[in-house]
Design a protein around this nucleic acid. Structure first.
Length: 877
RNA sequence: GGACGUAUAGCUCAGUUGGUUAGAGCGCCACAUUGACAUUGUGGAGGUCCGUGGUUCGAAUCCACGUACGUCCACCA
């Protein structure tokens, strides 16, 4: 072959874009174009990246793992679909654009632009982000079917969203309720419970005299209209006061207060007495409901104090705090102030602003209400009958408990159930503009819910939009064409696997299970594979402020996509965080180059480049039989690992075979035993090895493949399976002895500093098994003359390999003491080993209870060790 | 407060249902440079598998307790 086709080093940048383009134009990313009949299907949807910017290492690891799954299954001859898309990410994207507009000089972008103009700007930004993301995914080599690309906010997905909303509304699962919700004064929107984050903060904690009791609070500004004191029913200190009414001097004059007993009060906390603030605390709101108290709003949507606060009205609540405390101090009502109070401040997960609990009218999904289950005709869930009364919570639990959805790693089951147990009704309405607008219209007292706007005049649409996770919850089936009964839906739903980060198990995975089991009566996916976070080399999260971000694109530019992928996949296990350093990526770049050069050698060595049929294999030498055996063991192990989602182990075994067995031994031996049989086997293994590596390193393998099969593409090559008949235990055992002999020779050479240029004379004793391997040993051990026979006279260095002896004559070089020490050490070790084996075998309990095979192996080991010991003693004598 | 996880060589991590004299990569030490590859090769050093107790013929692996670190959830009037 032409050497120019394969330069000395693999330069990834020269090939990657062209290879990706050739895959794209081949059409093979689309399952409809795949060659051959394919009975089984494999389907996976891409967790749609937010259109808020660029891809980071978290996306890179996701793309790497999913592409491995996809390519492997495609080659396994399954009808394979990996469906891409992006997420509009409502609040996240709107917030990002607002910040950008404010940087451009706007003070209040929403007010200044109005809904329509503002949304135009957001859409424009989303489009730009989308284009960047798609290009980056292509750079990673992701083999996704772009012809099916979807967007959570496009019109097809909007129809799905509206249809589901109406279904749920009609089933009574979606309701409009007045409840305390998490309000972000900056986003001017409510948030779901899990969109609120907690940050530990030191603040002041105030104790005020309140009539007959002392109450504690961190937020005096909410306390204006508190007039109910709650104590624990068993608190003796207040027994006599419960049920009484008091005139209490308070912020804006006197208020009438009453005392009630309820178990929510904690006797240990502060004074054991608290007042309740129904409008700004969830617990208090529930209490107020329970006892029928009025709910007065003290703080409004802008975070300012309302009319109810009298002379403080209109002031910012947080800023007015000290003023209110001063007022109370004037009145002598401050008991004490704890300056070092540590508490968790709730903040918006998107903009970090302190969240205000407020009572608001919002849309909710009721997770505890019973409804009649609609079973699927197509892939029905087991264990639930059509028409059976179920709740959404119950469905979510059932899917995972019954293993119809299997989470990898399994331990996340517990986390999932725990989350569901604590789940409350899901607030799905948001007061932002970017998103799916709630499909509800009002006209006077009338309410209309529908997929399309109602006929007639005077209808006004609810201005709220839906939580972004409402539309992402439909992702697995809305992308396949639902609500239409499409061929895709029938073929690919339920999807085979969902691969995502464990950090969005609740946000997203749980929501998809909720939505799909409800809408289709099917599970969304059969397996959930959760990857961990990619951290920096010291284990910190990557963040811009720490300056420790490793950009996947930079790694691809510098070391190639294949190396970047390997560094993210090998050495990391599902559910666990992994650490990444540039050195690691560079290490895998070295490996891609190794594979390149192995190929370069093989392709240059063999007479006929091209496919080698099983039938044409003709193993002649020990090495031939050995490498075929090793390779077939490897194939079955790697295939099993990949089927079991054990990517790291599959990759490690492949690398170990490729480098430490194929390159270091077989290729080296082929240089001296390069007969016809060996040439065929070199070609045979290279061809299949490239196939096995392809899911991990698609670019370099596809590039090399051009040399082997200029017409075909590796991406659609069929996955070769292991053949049991090539497994040859005898050859493996014999080859290990050959390896150990060569290593022993090299070892002695190294010990006596014999440089490679100098050839040595070797005599092998009791080494009949190595007859016929002389040329191999001579070449690998840099040996001049090799003979079988007794230990030669003169200065000789000796190593014992099993019961064989390797003697090297080194006139004037041998250190007798060192030789003796070496053998003595080895004797002691062997004796220790023998002793431990004998002890175990002498144990009646062991020999009777342990499996036959274990005992047998131990007996074999013992006799081998005894033989070895005898030889060592002979040498020492 | 509740739950979950991790702890194995200097570093990063494997170790699949309990059966080895505990492995890999990187790093380290020594040697090697026209030969597929220095993005390389050869040899070597390096581990009380966090601690204690238990189950078992047998524990890095299973159980209990403890220690350290990490994560999630809940909540703090």
């Amino acid at each position: 072959m032409d050497k120019q086709d394969m330069p000395k080093a693999y330069e990834s940048g020269q090939y990657e874009d062209a290879i990706y383009a050739s895959w794209e134009s081949s059409g093979f990313f689309n399952p409809d174009n795949l060659p051959g009949e394919r009975e089984e299907t494999f389907s996976i949807v891409l967790p749609p990246p937010n259109v808020t910017g660029t891809l980071h290492m978290g996306h890179a690891v996701m793309l790497a793992i999913e592409d491995i799954m996809t390519r492997f299954n495609r080659m396994r001859w399954r009808k394979t679909l990996w469906l891409p898309g992006t997420d509009h990410a409502a609040i996240a994207t709107q917030t990002k654009v607002e910040k950008l507009l404010m940087k451009e000089g706007m003070e209040d972008p929403r007010r200044e632009l109005g809904r329509e103009k503002f949304l135009e700007r957001v859409e424009q930004f989303a489009q730009e982000s989308h284009d960047i993301i798609v290009n980056q995914a292509k750079r990673m080599g992701a083999s996704m079917d772009w012809s099916r690309e979807a967007y959570t906010l496009d019109s097809a997905r909007n129809r799905a969203v509206n249809t589901v909303f109406k279904m749920m509304y009609d089933d009574g699962l979606i309701y409009r309720g007045d409840r305390i919700v998490n309000w972000c004064p900056r986003c001017k929107s409510t948030l779901a419970d899990d969109e609120v984050e907690y940050r530990e903060e030191k603040s002041k904690f105030y104790y005020f005299k309140y009539g007959p009791v002392v109450i504690g609070t961190a937020r005096p500004e909410t306390k204006f209209l508190d007039k109910v004191i709650v104590v624990h029913p068993e608190d003796d200190r207040y027994k006599d006061l419960v049920g009484k009414e008091f005139e209490v001097e308070w912020i804006e004059g006197t208020v009438k207060a009453t005392m009630v007993a309820d178990e929510v009060a904690d006797m240990e906390m502060g004074s054991g007495a608290m007042t309740i603030t129904p409008a700004h605390s969830l617990v208090d709101f529930d209490l107020a409901k329970k006892y029928g108290y009025e709910v007065h709003r003290i703080i409004d949507e802008d975070g300012n104090l309302t009319e109810a606060t009298g002379s403080f009205a209109g002031k910012n609540a947080n800023q007015a705090r000290e003023e209110i405390v001063a007022r109370l101090a004037e009145k002598g009502l401050v008991d004490k102030i704890d300056e070092d109070y540590v508490h968790n401040l709730s903040v918006c997960y998107r903009c970090d602003t302190a969240v205000e609990p407020l009572p608001k009218v919002q849309w909710f999904i009721d997770v505890n209400k019973e409804f009649a289950f609609r079973a699927s005709q197509h892939a029905p869930m087991e264990g639930i009958e059509d028409g059976q009364q179920v709740t959404l919570k119950g469905l979510m639990q059932h899917a995972v408990r019954s293993k119809q959805v299997k989470i990898i790693p399994e331990r996340f089951d517990k986390t999932y159930f725990h989350w569901i147990d604590n789940l409350r009704d899901w607030n799905i309405s948001r007061q932002i503009w970017f998103g799916h607008q709630v499909p509800v219209w009002y006209r006077g007292e009338e309410t209309y819910v529908g997929v399309e706007a109602p006929e007639g005049e005077g209808w006004e649409r609810d201005p709220d939009t839906l939580d972004t996770w409402f539309s992402s919850g439909l992702w697995t089936f809305s992308t396949l064409g639902w609500p239409d009964e499409t061929a895709d839906l029938r073929t690919f739903q339920p999807t085979t696997v969902l691969e995502t980060g464990y950090d969005i198990l609740f946000f997203w995975v749980a929501r998809m299970i909720l939505m799909t089991t409800y809408v289709l009566g099917e599970v969304p996916f059969e397996n959930v594979y959760l990857h961990g976070l990619v951290r920096d080399e010291t284990g910190r999260k990557m963040s811009k402020s720490l300056g420790n971000v490793i950009d996947p694109l930079k790694m691809i530019d510098k070391y190639g996509a294949d190396a970047t992928r390997l560094s993210l996949v090998i050495g990391s296990t599902p559910g666990n965080d992994s650490k990444l350093s540039e050195a690691k990526v560079a290490g895998y770049r070295n490996f891609t180059n190794k594979l390149w050069n192995i190929s370069r050698f093989v392709l240059g060595q063999v007479e006929t480049v091209g496919h080698v049929a099983e039938a044409d294999l003709d193993p002649q030498t020990l090495a031939d039989r050995w490498i075929l055996s090793r390779f077939h063991v490897l194939q079955s192990e790697v295939t099993d690992h990949l089927e079991a989602y054990e990517f790291s182990q599959a990759g490690e075994k492949l690398r170990n075979f490729t480098w430490s067995e194929f390159a270091d031994w077989y290729v080296e031996i082929a240089k001296v035993q390069g007969g016809k049989s060996t040439q065929g086997i070199l070609m045979y293994i290279l061809e299949r090895l490239l196939t096995y590596w392809h899911p991990f390193m698609p670019f370099v393998t596809e590039q090399i493949w051009k040399q082997i099969d200029p017409e075909g593409m590796l991406i659609v090559h069929e996955w070769p399976m292991a053949k049991e008949r090539h497994v040859d235990a005898e050859a493996e055992t014999a080859f290990v002895q050959l390896q150990e002999t060569v290593v022993a020779i090299r070892n002695i050479r190294s010990q006596y500093n014999v440089v490679p240029k100098v050839l040595v004379n070797v005599v092998l004793s009791d080494a009949d098994v190595l007859a016929g391997q002389e040329d191999v040993i001579r070449s690998l051990g840099r040996v001049e003359s090799l003979t079988f026979g007794a230990k030669p006279e003169g200065d000789v260095a000796t190593a014992v390999v099993g019961s064989m002896q390797v003697h090297i004559s080194l006139e004037g070089l041998v250190d007798k003491e060192a030789e003796k020490g070496k053998l003595t050490k080895e004797r002691d070790e062997t004796q220790g080993y023998i002793a431990s084996l004998e002890k175990k075998l002498a144990n009646e309990a062991f020999t009777s209870k342990a499996p036959e095979q274990v005992v047998e192996t131990m007996r074999t080991n013992l006799s081998e060790a005894q033989a070895k010991l005898a030889v060592i003693n002979e040498q020492l004598a």
